[in-house]
């Protein structure tokens, strides 16, 4: 166990170093950020206790990453994996316990404690069920290409059901903003279909040149995005026709943001999403007009990057 945690700590340091930072300042800044957050929560009049529990629960999910678990399953017994994951979940939830306890939310602390205790068992059960059931592929309306939409849709289709439900609720309570935000979340999720690069052969099989390849990808992605957004657009425009301009603006931003993500992927292909890409995408989310500057930059870079692969 001791070596396991020493190794995981080493991996964390190496991950930070790979991003080009020294681990010690990153740890210090993270601790400071966390303390500031704790202080901010402390002085808030209406404390977001449930949000803290949810953030704690989300951080616990890091202990259950699929590839990592498969790796350890080959080395440790089920009992040992349960022990390791319980310890990791407790470590990850520890800062959130501190915030909850210092704010006097004992019930919420107990709730998070329950999540920490149960999560390794639930994860193990879910893994058993998923290998035993082997669900058939979820049908998609995206035909053969681009594969990103088929793959992405099959990964997060339940999110679209939730978004659809929230928009339906927004219509019921006549809250357009709620519907619009849900629609935006759905659009942003589509941009994340393009964050992971495919194997090189998925690119070299094309007979087009780099320009043709990129334009075809963009056209098909735009078409698929519109197809996937159609139910949300119909609901929003059908019940809030006066807000057509806002819905169109959000749709256009969603399209441009996805193009940024797509071009960003090929600008650094076949390397996985790097710091520059992540920062660019993050900034575009915070300051949407930035996409107009980032898209041409990524397009040029992607064109140059793909030229040796596509002639």
């Amino acid at each position: 166990m001791k070596f396991h945690f020493t190794l995981e700590y080493k991996r964390l340091r190496r991950q930070i170093e790979e991003l080009g930072f020294h681990p010690t300042p990153v740890f210090l800044v993270s601790a400071l950020l966390f303390l500031s957050l704790a202080f901010y929560v402390g002085i808030m009049t209406e404390k977001p206790s449930l949000l803290i529990v949810m953030a704690g629960a989300a951080s616990i999910s890091l202990a259950f990453r699929k590839k990592r678990t498969s790796f350890y399953r080959g080395i440790y017994s089920r009992k040992e994996i349960l022990k390791i994951q319980s310890a990791e979940a407790s470590l990850l939830a520890f800062p959130f316990f501190l915030i909850l306890l210092s704010s006097g939310f004992f019930m919420h602390t107990f709730l998070l404690f329950g999540v920490v205790i149960l999560s390794p068992f639930l994860f193990m059960m879910s893994q058993r069920t998923s290998t035993t059931l082997q669900m058939p592929p979820v049908p998609t309306p995206f035909k053969k290409y681009p594969f990103e939409f088929i793959q992405g849709f099959r990964t997060i289709w339940p999110l679209y059901l939730v978004v659809l439900f929230v928009i339906y609720k927004a219509v019921q309570v006549d809250n357009f903003n709620l519907g619009l935000v849900s629609f935006l979340i759905a659009l942003i999720s589509m941009a994340f279909f393009f964050t992971k690069p495919e194997p090189i052969s998925f690119v070299t099989i094309y007979v087009q040149n780099a320009k043709g390849f990129l334009w075809q990808k963009m056209k098909l992605s735009a078409r698929n995005m519109l197809l996937l957004s159609l139910p949300f657009i119909i609901l929003l425009l059908g019940f809030f026709p006066d807000e057509a301009l806002l819905v169109t603006m959000v749709m256009v931003f969603g399209l441009l943001f996805t193009m940024t993500s797509l071009l960003g992927k090929y600008a650094y292909f076949p390397i996985e999403m790097n710091v520059i890409q992540s920062i660019a995408l993050g900034l575009c989310l915070m300051i949407p007009p930035l996409v107009i500057i980032v898209i041409p930059v990524f397009y040029k870079k992607a064109l140059a990057n793909l030229k040796p692969l596509l002639s």
Binding site: K10, R11, R14, K67, R68, F71, G74
Partner: peptide, 13 residues
């Protein structure tokens, strides 16, 4: 001891 067809290797180890 089991050797899988494609052994999984964690990154940064």
């Amino acid at each position: 001891g089991m050797l899988e067809t494609n052994p999984i290797m964690l990154s940064l180890i």
